[in-house]
């Protein structure tokens, strides 16, 4: 019995030693090249936006070719979400929660399209085309005029109508920065 207790004691000690050294330390240093290639995150500040630019006019052509079949004419929605042409405000019943009424940051439009759209061929649009279709969606929502050029410098400056519409429940504060 005593021997067994001793053995258990030794086992516990060795487990403690093991737990301090249990990380096998096998991660490889990530090169700048791979980080830059993989990291496509875009922030409201504009950080992460690539080079390139686009116009509303060019964006309309992109929209017709890649987006219209699911999002409908002028972004009014079909098998996929309504993107523009809100008939209701956020306090109406039912409300229209779309880019022009709900989305707080213009940079999110670029980021989401680059990541995920079009569904049948994500990644097919180049940066100029992405900026252009972003410009077109902002134009359809009456947020920019038709001559505005959208790029890494102008996109973060676009003031979205619902910029201050969110309450950060996690940090329990009104986001007003």
């Amino acid at each position: 019995m005593f021997m067994r207790k001793c053995a258990l004691f030794v086992l516990l000690i060795s487990f403690n030693v093991f737990s301090q050294e249990k990380d096998p330390n096998l991660g490889q240093p990530a090169t700048l090249e791979i980080i830059e290639r993989w990291n496509i995150d875009v922030f409201p500040s504009g950080k992460g936006l690539p080079e390139g630019q686009g116009t509303v006019h060019a964006g309309k052509k992109i929209y017709k070719a890649y987006c219209l079949s699911c999002h409908g004419l002028d972004g009014t929605g079909d098998s996929a979400d309504e993107l523009a042409g809100a008939a209701h405000s956020l306090t109406d019943k039912p409300p229209d929660k779309i880019i022009g009424t709900y989305w707080p940051y213009a940079t999110t439009i670029f980021d989401f399209i680059r990541r995920s759209m079009p569904l049948n061929a994500p990644g097919i649009l180049n940066n100029n085309e992405l900026y252009a279709v972003t410009a077109y969606l902002l134009y359809l929502n009456d947020i920019i005029d038709k001559n505005r050029i959208i790029n890494a410098n102008t996109l973060p400056k676009v003031q979205m109508p619902n910029r201050y519409g969110f309450i950060d429940i996690y940090q329990k504060k009104i986001m007003n920065d």
């Binding site: 956020l90 306090t91 409300p95 519409g165 969110f166 309450i167 429940i169 996690y170 940090q171």
Partner: peptide, 14 residues
């Protein structure tokens, strides 16, 4: 995010 009757929306409601 969850739109409230006030028109504000709850965000990061994890």
């Amino acid at each position: 995010t969850e739109l409230l009757p006030s028109g504000k929306a709850r965000q990061f409601t994890f």
